[in-house]
Amino acid sequence: MAETASTPRRRGRPRKTQRGDTRERIADAAAAEFAEKGYEAASIRGIARRAGVDSALVHHYFDTKAALFAEVVKLPVRPDRVVRQALEAPIERLGESIATTVLTAWESPAVKPVGITILRSAIGSSAAGGLIRQYLLRELMSAIAGKLEDAGIPRPEAVLRAEFVLTQIAGVLILRHVLAAEPLASLPVGDVIARVTPALQGHIDGLG
Rank of each mutant, 00 (worst) to 15 (best):
Y61W: 09
A145E: 08
D63W: 09
E36I: 00
L75N: 10
P109N: 03
L200Y: 03
A181R: 12
R81P: 00
P113K: 00
E139C: 06
R9I: 12
A185W: 05
G115M: 04
P8G: 05
F34E: 00
I153H: 04
A145M: 02
G202C: 07
M1H: 10
R138W: 10
Y135W: 07
G115Y: 01
L87F: 03
S121Q: 15
G124Y: 02
D80G: 08
H59Y: 11
L166Q: 12
P156F: 05
R155W: 08
E33G: 04
P198V: 06
F69N: 03
P113M: 01
M141R: 15
G130K: 05
P156L: 05
A158V: 01
A2S: 13
M141E: 15
L136V: 15
A5K: 14
T7D: 15
W106D: 04
P154D: 09
V178H: 07
H203L: 10
S125G: 10
I26W: 03
A199K: 09
R45S: 14
A32S: 13
P113A: 00
L103K: 05
V58M: 06
A151G: 08
R13L: 14
S108Y: 02
I169K: 04
K74P: 01
L207M: 10
R11H: 11
Q85S: 13
V189C: 08
R78V: 08
A158N: 07
T22L: 15
G129Q: 01
R138T: 13
Y61P: 03
L94K: 08
R49V: 09
H177Y: 15
L173Q: 12
S108D: 15
R161T: 00
T101A: 05
L179K: 12
V111Q: 04
F164N: 12
F164K: 12
I118F: 03
V82R: 02
I47G: 07
E157F: 01
G46C: 02
L131M: 13
V178T: 07
R93D: 15
L94T: 04
L136S: 14
V189I: 15
H177R: 11
V172M: 03
I169A: 04
V72F: 00
L207V: 10
S126C: 06
L184S: 05
I153V: 15
G130L: 00
R138P: 01
L160I: 08
R176Y: 03
K65R: 11
G52M: 05
A180W: 06
S43M: 06
E33Q: 13
I204F: 01
A185Q: 06
L75R: 10
I26E: 07
R138V: 11
T7S: 15
A199F: 11
D21F: 07
S55F: 01
A86W: 03
L75F: 12
L160E: 14
E96F: 10
L140S: 06
A29P: 01
E3H: 11
I116N: 08
D21S: 12
L87Q: 07
T100D: 14
D205L: 10
I116M: 09
G20F: 09
H60L: 14
V53A: 02
I98W: 03
R133A: 02
Q18R: 11
A41H: 06
A110Y: 11
A185P: 07
L173P: 03
A27E: 14
L94S: 05
I123D: 09
L166H: 07
F69K: 04
